[in-house]
Design a protein around this nucleic acid. Structure first.
Lengths: 113, 113
DNA sequence: TTTGTATTTCGCAAAATAACGAAATGTTTT
DNA sequence: AAAACATTTCGTTATTTTGCGAAATACAAA
């Protein structure tokens, strides 16, 4: 049996966020919502995106599940907004990946050159 | 037939990058490689990750296809490194999403409150 | 040339994702 | 209460993803 290392929490978390962002419809939604002070209705979104209402609903559900957006009932509509707290956390998670300081310490044990 | 809007290139691009990053093994690899000046062997990586060699190879292939890493033959090994050019582009793409200025212009036509 | 080492590709099975239309839910208006 | 509207859930189908072990490939050493 292979050792089976586990993923560290930050690795899993970032992968999960990336997964939520891994579809053009969902990126479109995030882009749109993040650029607006206020929020957006599913019925408006469906006109701008090449999927039907039920598929759009699924995408919204996924984004909600990932914590990146939140929906509030505003009869007779449902209003979707960026979840700013988690949005900022997601931003930091990516920054942490991309801005990580380059260290050569591990290179000794694992790398060539 | 519904109008079928297309995705703008930047939306598709970002979704594709996110997709390449949507698995913990691939995040692990990117994290590791990005923190090292030099590179890493598949054979070293396989010890740190809970998948077999063939699955790891697939993940590396996906990251390579997405342009985030590159492999160079260094007999008898293959050495993987971050593709710094595309890595920086990916970083900018995320920054562009997360740092987008909030504008209320569209809000008038699409939003409540 | 044969053997050994490192890695990838192939063939397959299981699971997850994506999309659709129909039906269901919940709310408001008539 | 019934009709209308916005949205979600359900049931289904097609496609993609993930992972494995076995086989193939590529190269170096013996």
């Amino acid at each position: 049996m292979r050792p089976k290392p586990e993923y560290s929490p930050d690795v899993s978390e970032l992968a999960q966020i990336a997964k939520a962002m891994s579809h053009p419809v969902r990126i479109y939604i995030l882009k749109k919502l993040s650029q607006m002070q206020s929020c957006c209705y599913s019925g408006d979104l469906v006109l701008e995106v090449p999927v039907g209402r039920s598929a759009l609903s699924q995408h919204l559900k996924e984004l909600k599940f990932a914590g990146l957006i939140q929906g509030e009932i505003e009869p007779p509509y449902i209003k979707y907004c960026i979840n700013r707290d988690n949005w900022n956390k997601a931003q930091k998670a990516f920054e942490n990946l991309f801005d990580a300081p380059v260290t050569d310490l591990n290179a000794i044990s694992c790398c060539s050159i």
